[in-house]
Amino acid sequence: MRLRAVTSSTFLLIILSSLFVDVSVSASFLPALIKGIPLWLKNSRTSKFSSVWNKLKSLFTFKKGLKLGDVYKGLSEVKEYLDIFGYLNSTLNSNFNDTFTLELQSAIKQYQKNFNLQVTGQLDQDTYSMISQPRCGVPDVVNTTSFTRWWKPGRRELTYAIHPRNNVSNGVKVLLRDVFARWSNATSLGLAETASFDGADVRVAFVVLDGEGGTVGGAETNYSARFGSVYLDSEEKWVVKGESDEGEVDLESVLMHVVGHVLGLGHSFVEEAVMYPIVLPDKKKTKLAYDDLLRIHRIYGET
């Protein structure tokens, strides 16, 4: 099977996927696409995913690191990437160029520190290799330190639903139910499926993002309308059951990650954690690690 994703703040026209098929072994799925569906996802950041990832995929062939003062075709795309994920501030740099600036050096140092790379401030091969990995679309660096509940005060029961036009199989529904149950057990929140997508507190959809690789999914919250959005890229080779092969993405692991976001968690830079932002090959993450539990309990307390 295959599928794909977007974000939430103002309504966007996007292409939604449908047609999931039950599988009993490792397999990817290819959805039929339905055009022109207005969705509830909001953040225009996702509109940048496609152009950035497509240019980054085959950008660099250099052997040694780029450093402060260098001019190299394609550095503007690296700046765009670092801006999308919170390391640079586009309001200060509305037109990124191909010059290696002090701001870029600082952003790369923070990125290297986060991902346990050698902190050189240079765009070396190890740093670029990490940048080119499939990952979550939520920024790593967010200008807030506290979690604010987007649902109505006092609510302990939340509902979720998957977009009906995705027409997912029972296998995907069961997997989604299991994921929400695991987070429910960790938070003491009731998380139950509902048939009403528009009335659900958490709305899940497979939507078009940026093709295979790149951004596999993410989450957004709408504080004024009081709902959360979970999105998944419909063009990934999603594995519903079984081990993933090269180029495939384990759906359960990604769902665990993005549901964690909608419940208030940011990214973790502990590689074993569910909330680690990079999709690691051949590594399923279906159970909450110690770091995930430690941080979710800071929000909801021990269960």
Rank of each mutant, 00 (worst) to 15 (best):
E103G: 09
V179H: 01
L294N: 07
I14V: 14
D292M: 02
F197I: 07
S188W: 05
K109F: 07
L191D: 00
V21T: 15
G264V: 07
L68Y: 06
V258H: 03
V141L: 13
Y81E: 01
P281A: 08
L41F: 12
L88R: 02
F60V: 10
E246K: 14
N93T: 08
E103I: 09
H267Q: 10
Y160T: 03
H297G: 04
P134G: 04
K79D: 02
D124T: 02
L265P: 01
G86S: 07
E193L: 03
I299Y: 12
R149Q: 15
Y231C: 07
G65Y: 00
T91K: 13
F60Q: 08
T286W: 08
K109A: 09
G154M: 09
G74W: 01
S184K: 01
N89I: 09
A186N: 02
N54R: 13
A107I: 04
N54H: 13
F206Q: 00
V52R: 04
P153M: 11
S24M: 13
D70T: 05
F60S: 12
V216C: 00
E271N: 07
S244A: 15
H257R: 05
F60C: 09
K64N: 07
E103H: 12
Y231A: 07
V274N: 02
S76F: 06
G260C: 10
L251P: 03
D201M: 00
A192D: 07
Y160V: 03
A289V: 08
W151A: 00
N170T: 12
L75Q: 04
L158E: 02
A181E: 12
Q125G: 06
G190N: 11
N43L: 03
L288G: 00
S234G: 13
S44M: 11
D83L: 04
S24I: 15
V25Q: 14
T159S: 15
K173N: 15
S234T: 11
L59I: 10
T120E: 02
N54G: 09
L263Y: 05
V172M: 12
S146A: 10
E243D: 13
S18T: 13
V172Y: 11
G247K: 08
E243L: 10
K48H: 13
F62W: 14
M130R: 13
